[in-house]
Amino acid sequence: MSADAISVTELTVDYDGVTAIEDVGFTVSAEKLTAIVGPNGAGKSTLIKALLGLIPTRTGSISCFGTLPKQYRKKISYVPQRAQIDWEFPASVFDVVAMGLYSELGLLRYFSSAHKDRVQSALTDVDMADFAARQISQLSGGQQQRVFLARSIVQDAELILLDEPFGGIDVKSEAVIVDILRRQKQYGKSIVAVHHDLSTVTDYFDDVILLNKTVTAFGPVNNAFTKANIEKTYGVSNLDFLTGRA
């Protein structure tokens, strides 16, 4: 197996007629927790969309476990921002996690008891087994995020891509989710997450990608997540806020 989960070279992507990211290059190591960090408007969402093959790229190449986009879609699962979802949608926790099996099941294949077991075991992985019948509108933010993680786990993808998994949830839930992600890493998954809180990067993640239209640094947090690199990425010199929760 290749040691790189993702390899991106000279990637430029236009979004809404504007160059959102330019000449981006980095690699993501397999079986690591990697954070994508950068200021607002740095092109983090654009990068995620490009990695998922959802938007056209102008130049450059992306490969995931040695294959091109389109071919690798089955190897990636995606956890969107909670805010993008209508949580009033009439669905139970079980229903949402079962959606992770739809691409495997197609339109008409029977949803067997084996599939049901897989959904339940994914829910157990995120400590939500008792909530299967609960309507999603009646969950806390952290629980909603765990349901999405379960949906991603049930897909059995090699790489899990998360867009701000800790957005708008409390500290306790955050710790629970970090635990779940670490466990998935031990199962051999590679995890990439867009992350906002600079103060927790070193605690939560193995590797980091610092992005502001282009990549200013990437690699293990010890080497890449330095004061100089952060200043370069955020364009500020006063980083005292790093000591508190940003």
Binding site: L52, L54, S103
Partner: peptide, 14 residues
Amino acid sequence: IVSTFDQTFAEISG
């Protein structure tokens, strides 16, 4: 259902 609930996820799921 899947494309109504979560369009991006649906697109990625093919």
